[in-house]
Amino acid sequence: MTRTVLSLRDISVSYGKAEAVRNVSLDISAGSIVTVIGANGAGKSTLLNAAMGVVRGEGRIQFDGADCSDEPVETRVMAGMSLVPERRELFSTMSVEDNLTLGAFRAKVTRGEKADRLARIYDRFKRLGERRHQLAGTLSGGERQMLAMGRALMIEPKLLMLDEPSLGLAPLIVKDIFRIIVELRSTGVSILLVEQNARAALEVADYAYVMETGSVTLEGRAADLIHDRRVVASYLGLREAVPA
């Protein structure tokens, strides 16, 4: 049986009286890509933020065998969780290289190891290497997404959580990003991918959850869900719906 990296149990998050996430449970096994798809406002991002500790909610969060429900964000980062948020949240007035270096702020490694990590990121994202001295705020949308992913990878996380990595990007760049996501899985990183682009997400994922108005309404192997009638009808477009 494969090891579970992240396990969310009965997570609920409310903003005032509005309940954004309601009793969601989710598991990610080591080295797999798990995707959460759903419409805008279904609570996907809130779920990620709760897993990272950016927002507080109810329920238990187990990461890598330890309960981290009450731990602050920095402890989760040190334990090996990393989140690339939807708005990227880069340090816009600092250079690409400074952004990446800060990604390893909590890494307890030598200076040489940090330099090696930086080199590996530049190797994976060639454009970042070319623009290492440029300010993050001057990058294009695709480059920003790459920088946000690179920054999150500098800590060498066990689990990388990506919130809408394809949002607002040109199709070619989206393809590139998804190729990198698959590459990352092969290096042993587990990935939790939140996407509105359901087709792209289901094509790369091993397992998938569908969220509607704060709850998980459907889950299963991604390869099965991509043919599920309800998923096809709601998220992949009607033309592919199998006639009943």
């Binding site: 990272m52 920095e74 980062v77 040190m78 989140l83 949240e89 270096t101 800060l102 920054r151």
Partner: peptide, 22 residues
Amino acid sequence: MIGKALRATAVNRLGARLVGIS
């Protein structure tokens, strides 16, 4: 590093939290 971390916090608080700068 600590100086850069402070600048990072000034530029983007959420970004800083996400890289573990409390």
